[in-house]
Every structure is written in C-alpha cells, then in structure tokens.
Design a protein around this nucleic acid. Structure first.
Lengths: 138, 138
DNA sequence: TATAAGAATAAGAATCATTCCGATTTAAGG
DNA sequence: CCTTAAATCGGAATGATTCTTATTCTTATA
C-alpha cells in the first residue's frame, strides 16, 4: 500500500484529494504503527498549524469507510488508526508495550457461525482484539 | 445467582454491604438484561434520590472486579452491565434490537494460542463481542 | 481563464460518559 | 458505644468525539 494507490482509491470513490487528506495518509504511512487522533493532529500541525480535530476525525472516518485504514479499539476504550496493509478483514495482536500490531492469522467468527445458527442469531458485526506483549517487549 | 450468594461473595472479599450497593445488585437481578450506568442510576434514584454517578460507577467496577457482573462493550463504545449468570469467562451474542444477550458457547482464544506462540506474542487480555439480531428481532 | 456547485475546512461550542476531588457519612468489628 | 477505613455526595473536571455555521477550496465545465 503506497500513497499512489491510496490516492487512486480515493478518487475512484469520488472523493477530493485535499492537502490535509493526503498529509494524513502520508503520516500514517511514515509512522507504520497505529496512531491516536491526537497524535495525528499533532503531526499534521507541523505542516498545517491551523488544522482542527474535526478535519482529522472526518478524514479518518472516510478512510476507514473506504477500508484504507483500520481502527483499533484499545483496552481503555480509545481508538487508534493504522494503514490497512492487507485488503481483507482481519484482527490484531496489539502490543501494550510498543504499540506494534501483528495480524491474527484467522478471524474466529466462521468457527462460531454454526453456534449462532443453533440459537437463530443473525450476525451483523463483531469486535475482536487481543492485547499483550510482543517478543521484544516481554 | 441470587442476592444472598452475591452478598456472601462481597463479604468474603472484605467489602461493606451498603444499601446502595445492595440496591444496584437487586436492580441488575430484577432486570435480567444489561443496563447502562445511566439506567442503573435512574432506577436507583427511586429509592435514593441523592445518589451520584460516582457511586454507580464505583460499585459497578467493584462488582466487575469480583466477577459478579460482566461489562459489555457496545458498538457505539458505550458500556452496559449485567449479572454474570455463569461463573466463568465467556462472550455474548448481543441483540441490537431488544438488547438481550445470549452466551457464545466457546471463547475463540484457545484456538488462536498456537498462532500467538508462533509469533512469540504473550496474551494478556482480549475483547470479543458479536452484534446482530436474535430470533425474535429479525 | 472564469465560474458555479458541492465538498472540505476552521473555530470553537456542545455533548456525553466517566473520573476526580474534598468534605462528610456510614458499616462493621471490637 | 467507638473507632476507623470504606463508602458516599455534589459538583467540577476531563477527554474524546461530534456538531454548527460561516468560510474556503477543488474540480468540472464553460
């Protein structure tokens, strides 16, 4: 995933490529790890001193809808964002030490579909995140 | 799970049995379903008009630590609480229509332990909730 | 290049759940 | 009954997120 392909996907979706929108993507690409909305705002203020939280959230929501980034729910309820390296649905091992994430190789939901069917439950969405420590942080 | 056994567990943990604490447990038992902190506060105000949010949250956190209730993260980020009918760790099918929950028969984590080991990730905690519609609400 | 239309933005107020604070009250054991 | 730590109150504070309104860009098209 590079800036070029992200820009193409934005344009294909009928969205404008504004300087701030591009900068948010570049920040996420450069950092690699997941960032909070506040961290993104602060990084953005380097180039655009007058940028607002509203702009950060609006663009993060847009990028998330287009599946260009993914939102990680943290243990404390806060949210962090990172470039979606893969294009498909997946979950994360989230390191509580350094903040790096690794991808969980499979989604647990398919295994449970039969159990849901047994109680006639129609699945709409789910959340799954695993918190702990990566090899380096243990 | 009844009021008596909950009181015993509180006393065993060295906690006082205050009228408000008992009332919160009774409200959760009487309602059966999961309630938000606000709903609990409002129900509590019937008996104790001057009770504060602080008291509600303090007691909910205590009851959660003692595993007497479980906290459900909702899709919108809010939290709801219900009596922990079983004594062990489990997850829920959460109905977006009526708010009822059904217990997921197994936790997906054990299946993924091997994958975590493969990347030397030390698991500390996890979140898993499934949202959808129960049979009656579809 | 000019312009129109809609999309995006700024600024800061508003919201909402949750937590914190200092002062006061209360449960439970001796 | 007394003591003491725990629990409570009332309300302010916090912090992330969303909303509102006026303004400014982008892009497409003339």
């Amino acid at each position: 995933m590079d800036v070029g392909s992200i820009i193409k996907r934005l344009e294909a979706g009928g969205h404008k490529l504004t300087p701030k929108r591009r900068a948010i993507v570049e920040i996420l690409l450069a950092e690699g790890r997941h960032l909070s909305a506040k961290e993104i705002l602060q990084a953005l203020q380097g180039k655009f001193p007058r940028v607002s939280f509203d702009t950060v959230y609006r663009n993060l929501h847009l990028l998330e809808e287009m599946k260009l980034i993914c939102a990680l729910e943290m243990q404390d309820g806060g949210c962090r964002y990172q470039i979606n390296l893969r294009d498909d649905h997946h979950h994360h091992w989230v390191c509580l030490g350094c903040g790096q994430t690794l991808e969980v190789p499979e989604c647990p939901l398919p295994v449970l579909k039969k159990a849901a069917g047994a109680v006639k439950f129609k699945i709409i969405s789910h959340r799954f995140e695993v918190y702990g420590y990566c090899e380096g942080c243990q």
